[in-house]
Design a protein around this nucleic acid. Structure first.
Lengths: 331, 331
DNA sequence: ATAACGTTTGCCATCGATGGCAACGGTGCC
DNA sequence: GGCACCGTTGCCATCGATGGCAAACGTTAT
């Protein structure tokens, strides 16, 4: 009576039956305006809120969105999560988060957990590898992929055009006279990384620029290995410019360049990061718009929840190139 | 029958009654070992998982933890959220996140939403201001505060000793010969900031160091204002050292120092950040251990869920001082 | 007066898990 | 032989919201 207010209390207080109260709650038109107002007033006064567990049980679904990312503790995903949470709360939905830490088995477990929690929909940044197990899930529960496609699943995708953006970075550097442009990135088995590497290679080829094997270090999943790769690049016939294909990589490349006092080497980072403008020189970046991606993903998910028969769509959010100095200098 | 497996299916397949199947599920001792094993096998084979909505409805509670922070998109909280999520998933619990964005009204709404979702417990980084409304909530649902206390609530708290840590920063700088030490921090109405400011003042006083009003800029909630404050500090009778009392502030102070070419001014940042070691000089920091705090918070919450009668406890996680150069140089 | 219509009411089942309770066949003990 | 247990079974209610259905309202039109 005191702590917990349920629909029955509302009905009693408003002097109507539960049936009518329920109708008001669900905007059923078969309620007289006067009655509707009276019930709504009581709902406000009593602070009644429908029990989501009961609703979820009855309806077989829930207002919650499941959000599965690689790691919340990563600047890109942190921003993404923030945007998703904000957009979701504006749509009256809660967000359950989970991190895969790049473990496909964990990813699958997490997704299954969320599904049986009957989430309304899923926003998922898939790990690498086959995702055909996801197809039946996606058929039953709306799924929006973010940042990268998933192998073997046909679902909405919101991301950026990694290939074109990376090609743009190459173009930028080339137009500043660079010909020996190295690439430091994550493993190409991550689709995003693969696309970036492809964009790099294509753009280089399009300009007739050579890409000897030792210029490409696509095996850096973390800052430490990126720093190693950078040191090795500098030790050989050093490039005049480097494209760091992920923020995570830049966090290794930049310290390495500074430690070796080789800030004369041009750099474009795929992904902005705090303080990138405080360094000398400021780091020129492709701004990976995590917030915009998150927002668009919620938008798409909401649309699909409203109409499950929408055609599958891939959305590309634009990527800006922010010049800050590190990509414009020449050795 | 196919997509959804419920307890009845398990009972049928195992040739037992639902009552017995339920007993197995809840580790009721009144089940013969052979039967228990048989049922468990069926559960595995069929991939049965109890419906959480039904459980939640029946039990009046849920396995989910509600996590309310200021903003997921903040390095400290991002790490905190990551640690909480990891620890929670190991304890078999999910995490619902929500960001207050420093809005007390929003905080209250979010907490109430989570409560009516019947979360098992709450981990909350409270905003500033009176929280007496939280007291009844905390009485019914376990609440663990993180990072800072909440006014008017007696609940478990996991954080760091802000006062002592900041005092340590002062001591560090003073022992390197600094006497004119400035303070740049957030508003003192945030309890954490207040404690840091107090630690600063006390430590300064203890060493007989003067703190004229223009040395203290406790009004910087974001990097931009911290950068402004820094410029103003440098414009007057410049300090030889600055304590930046939050990562958010450092992200403004550091660029400002670099832009004004005043990296000779010593700096200690409360809160580490990416690349703090790549700058010249590397930034000396008090490492605000977000991960450890998150972990400890989940631990405390789990303990309290197991035994609601535990006494209210404040836990302080140790803070390390990481010397990287910026706090050791003298003008 | 009767029909028609819009609104409201009870009543009951459903969603899936859980737990109280009575009952029942078996085993072992006195 | 009688009795106390143990494992197990059915049956039923409960958690809160929802929706189908038939019936009963009050009004208004015919």
């Amino acid at each position: 009576m005191s702590g917990h207010i349920i629909l029955r209390d509302v009905a009693q207080a408003a002097g109507v039956s539960m049936r009518t109260a329920s109708r008001v709650l669900n905007n059923d038109p078969r309620v007289a305006d006067a009655t509707r107002r009276r019930v709504q007033d009581v709902i406000r006064d009593l602070g009644f809120v429908p029990d989501s567990a009961a609703r979820s049980l009855r309806a077989g679904t829930d207002a919650t969105i499941g959000l599965v990312v690689e790691s919340v503790d990563d600047p890109f995903f942190a921003t993404l999560v923030g945007a998703v949470e904000l957009a979701a709360s504006e749509a009256g939905r809660s967000v359950l988060i989970a991190s895969t830490h790049r473990d496909p088995a964990r990813e699958r477990t997490l997704v299954e957990q969320l599904i049986r929690r009957r989430v309304a929909g899923l926003i998922l940044a898939p790990t690498a590898g086959d995702h055909s197990w996801l197809q039946p899930v996606a058929a039953a529960t709306p799924v929006v992929l973010v940042d990268r496609p998933a192998d073997g699943v046909d679902a909405d995708l919101v991301g950026v055009d990694d290939r074109a953006a990376t090609a743009r970075a190459v173009g930028h550097l080339a137009s500043h006279g660079h010909r020996r442009i190295a690439y430091v990135g994550d493993h190409p088995r991550v689709p995003t990384s693969l696309a970036r590497l492809a964009g790099y290679r294509e753009a280089m080829a399009a300009r007739g620029l050579d890409v000897p094997g030792d210029l490409v270090r696509a095996d850096c999943p973390d800052p430490r290995s990126a720093a190693d790769a950078t040191r090795k690049l500098l030790a050989g016939q050093a490039p005049t410019a480097i494209i760091s294909a992920a923020t995570r990589c830049s966090l290794g490349v930049v310290p390495a360049l500074h430690a070796e006092r080789r800030t004369d080497v041009a750099l474009v980072s795929f992904g902005d990061f705090a303080m990138a403008d405080a360094l000398q020189p400021g780091i020129t970046v492709l701004d990976h718009p995590a917030g915009t991606v998150g927002l668009a993903a919620v938008g798409r998910l909401t649309a699909r929840l409203a109409d499950p028969d929408l055609p599958v769509l891939t959305t590309h959010v634009p990527v800006r190139l922010i010049q800050r100095g590190s990509g414009e200098l020449t050795a």
